[in-house]
């Protein structure tokens, strides 16, 4: 059985690390989690980002957070990526698979996947 003692071990391990507070990374990934987003599948998208960022070792650089309605319900699940000095990137109609790709190519590799952005879907 999992025990609170294991949490203590996690705490001790964290002591040596920089504690990352929400929004303190260089890149902020924000997932819309209002009714429309949740109904369209935002929960697995959010989890794919959380898993992917950890798996790629990007936790120090990238924070994943949630917000309410982004205002473009027909494009949900919507994910915004903020990076200092760069224009905001808005990914639309996201899935867990696309999220994994965004982690690899964009968050890790630095290349925006234009075909998943709102700009592409408006054409």
């Amino acid at each position: 059985m999992k025990s609170l003692a294991e949490l203590q071990a996690i705490k001790d391990k964290m002591k040596d690390k920089v504690v990352l507070r929400e929004g303190s990374g260089d890149i902020r990934v924000v997932v819309g989690m209002a009714t429309c987003g949740i109904a369209a599948g935002a929960r697995p998208v959010l989890n794919a980002f959380v898993e992917g960022v950890n798996a790629e070792g990007l936790s120090e650089k990238v924070s994943v957070s949630q917000t309410g309605c982004i205002g473009i319900c027909q494009f949900e699940p919507v994910v915004e990526v903020f990076e200092a000095g760069k224009e905001k990137v808005t990914y639309v109609k996201m899935t867990a698979e696309k999220a994994k790709e965004v982690v690899e190519k964009h968050l890790k590799g630095g290349n925006v996947i234009s075909e998943y952005t709102i700009a592409a879907s408006k054409l």
Partner: peptide
């Protein structure tokens, strides 16, 4: 138990 370690730390989740 965690004190000031945030609950959204990956290992905690």
């Amino acid at each position: 138990v965690l004190g000031d370690v945030p609950l959204n730390t990956y290992d905690v989740i």
